[in-house]
Write a protein that binds this DNA or RNA. Structure first.
Lengths: 129, 129
DNA sequence: CTTGACCTTCCAGTTTAGTGGAAGGTCAAG
DNA sequence: CTTGACCTTCCACTAAACTGGAAGGTCAAG
């Protein structure tokens, strides 16, 4: 697959793929005789993984850490495990924060949706903060 | 409360509070006769709300939208409700992404934690991607 | 009455994650 | 044999969210 096709399949631009290659999140692709990058189909799912991580608010560095498990191989397993355990703890904390936030926003929303005229009062809404 | 005390209570720096004021996330504080900002105690919880949102991966603009409910008051309730409904949809999408990501990372981790020596093989781990 | 820890404004620099555009090569189709 | 849609590199620019530092004011304590 060429870069544009791969990028489109993953919902990104070709520019972004080159940028990810530069940052080491994407291994340097094979080149066709004309110099064009030639990606295997699996690259799409790797990119989707990166995109999910980004949407979830992870930095490229964090995503790179997770992906680098692939390249660590030589290192003792304990390093891999520790890295992943830390990522899990971070993700759990982040999910907890988001869930708490969602609950707060839902409270605002329900008050507004109840049609309760008082819910339009900025002071009352503010008290939820 | 002065700016440094308020910032410390919320786990931030005074610089960040001035920055938030500049961005409209924090209303301009009252000033003491000497020109120092004087914050009410509630500012700490407002800042904690902002910090939770940031930790959860929201942008300051999104957090500002949520907080601006406070200032909308005059506007018809439907605007408030739509804004909050959109925030809820965004939060749900983000929580779903994070949860999916967590599941993937947990798979890696369990494979590594099983003590399965094969889990050290980069090719095998890679297959999860 | 000076020292130190605060505070003020303003302006510039940093990091992250891209995006835009120039200058040019490739290639199938008309 | 020339468009047009791709691709290449390289360099500069953007936006978001701070962060640092200069230059100076305030004030309680020694």
């Amino acid at each position: 697959m060429r870069i544009g096709e791969t990028a489109t399949a993953a919902g990104m631009t070709a520019k972004t793929l080159r940028f990810y290659e530069d940052r080491g999140l994407l291994p340097a692709a094979d080149r066709a005789p004309n110099g064009y990058r030639d990606y295997p189909h699996e690259t799409v799912s790797r990119l989707e993984f990166i995109r999910r991580g980004r949407t979830a608010g992870l930095t490229l560095a964090q995503i790179g850490d997770i992906l680098s498990v692939r390249d660590i191989g030589q290192a003792p397993c304990v390093h891999v495990r520790d890295l992943l355990a830390k990522q899990l703890r971070d993700l759990d904390a982040q999910i907890a924060e988001l869930t708490a936030l969602r609950a707060t926003v839902a409270e605002f929303h329900d008050a507004a949706a109840a049609g309760d005229p008082a819910s339009c009062d900025p002071e009352r809404i503010c008290s939820y903060l």
